[in-house]
Simulated assay, not measured.
Amino acid sequence: MTQRKSIFITGAASGIGRHTALLFASRGWFVGLADIDVEGLDRLEREIGADNCRTLWLDVTDAKRYRAAIEMFTSSTGGRLDVLFNNAGILRMGRNEDIPLMQQYLTLDINVKGVLNGIHCALPALRVTPDAHILTMCSTSAIYGMPELAVYSASKHAVHALTEALDLELERDGITVSDIMAPYVNTPMVTGASTQASSVRSTGVNVQPEQVAEVVWKAAHGRKRHWKIHYLTHVLMAVFSLLPPLRRPIIKALCLGR
């Protein structure tokens, strides 16, 4: 059993989750590594060291398994959970009519239902941990609905609203709720996609997972609700706030080239 600070990371086997796990472990935290990718988890455990983490096979859409995973992890931390990082997510790009309905449902199941499951199952441990945080990966696509990312964008709008609502609700419990808003990140989910949205070409993939991990570290020690990464996120939020009529034409130009 450890008394170190602890973080539970979903989607930990690759990309943002992997780099976040490595960063927190290197800074003395005990890390929960949750994913469906068993081989990826095994590789990561070898890098971090078995004494610094606990690996857990987890499908985030399964609330029963999620609850059991949290209980197993906190049995190694003395019941404490300093940070829940809802990082697991999927992205399907392309025209909405070309994406099978079951894939659209799966996007919502993982990106929204998975987050709801995590928060619900982790709350007992978070409530007994002083200054606990709930962090969720969001997206620049939560600012305005993005064509060729319609369902993904909708899922991130849900995360954005959920963050704001729960940050108010859980304030009395001393729990800070935040999201991390980033444009395209250089991960297999984006670069390895069989179909890529036009906005990938127009805006580029300019954020590295290591950069996101550093922002997660700051968020785990901060109080802001929305942590914005890259100038594109900052510029779009500022322009859309000050000049609402420009939202639609800017998104058309960025995402559809017209």
Rank of each mutant, 00 (worst) to 15 (best):
I143S: 07
E71M: 11
G114Q: 11
V205R: 04
D37K: 09
L254S: 13
P245V: 05
H19W: 14
L41Q: 04
L256A: 12
D59F: 04
D179H: 12
D109G: 09
V128R: 15
I9P: 01
D35Y: 10
M72D: 09
R65M: 09
H133S: 10
V151M: 11
G17L: 05
Q3C: 05
V185N: 08
P188D: 08
G15I: 03
Y66Q: 09
K5C: 00
R46Q: 11
M181W: 07
E97D: 15
D62R: 14
D109P: 07
L170I: 00
L246H: 07
D82N: 15
K228A: 01
R225K: 10
I229L: 01
H230E: 10
C255S: 12
L162G: 02
C53L: 10
N87C: 15
M181H: 13
V159E: 04
K252E: 09
R127S: 11
P147N: 13
N117C: 10
A25C: 00
I134H: 00
I134P: 00
S155L: 02
S241L: 06
G257N: 12
T2F: 00
F85K: 13
Q103W: 05
C138H: 04
F73A: 04
R46M: 06
V112D: 10
R4P: 00
S198P: 07
S202T: 11
P183F: 12
T74I: 11
D109A: 15
T74S: 12
V215Q: 01
K5A: 01
I250M: 13
A238K: 10
C53R: 13
R67E: 14
T176N: 05
K64Y: 03
Q3L: 14
R92Y: 15
T61W: 03
T195N: 11
A125T: 14
A122F: 08
P245G: 07
M189A: 15
D173R: 13
P244K: 08
F240Y: 08
H221E: 13
R127H: 03
I48F: 08
K224G: 01
E47P: 06
V115P: 03
I251C: 07
N186V: 00
A122G: 10
L81M: 03
S199M: 12
M1A: 15
K156F: 09
M72Y: 03
T176E: 04
E39G: 15
W217I: 04
G114I: 09
G94K: 00
V207G: 03
S141G: 03
S199G: 06
L56H: 09
F30L: 03
Y105G: 03
M137C: 12
K5M: 02
L135V: 14
S198K: 14
G40T: 09
S14Q: 15
G78N: 08
H230I: 01
T129M: 01
M1K: 15
I229G: 00
T10L: 05
I119H: 04
F240R: 04
L84H: 03
L232S: 12
L236K: 03
E164Y: 07
F73G: 05
P209H: 11
G78L: 10
T107I: 05
V83R: 05
H157R: 13
K5P: 01
T10C: 09
Q103M: 06
V31W: 02
K224M: 08
A220Y: 00
A13L: 13
V235C: 02
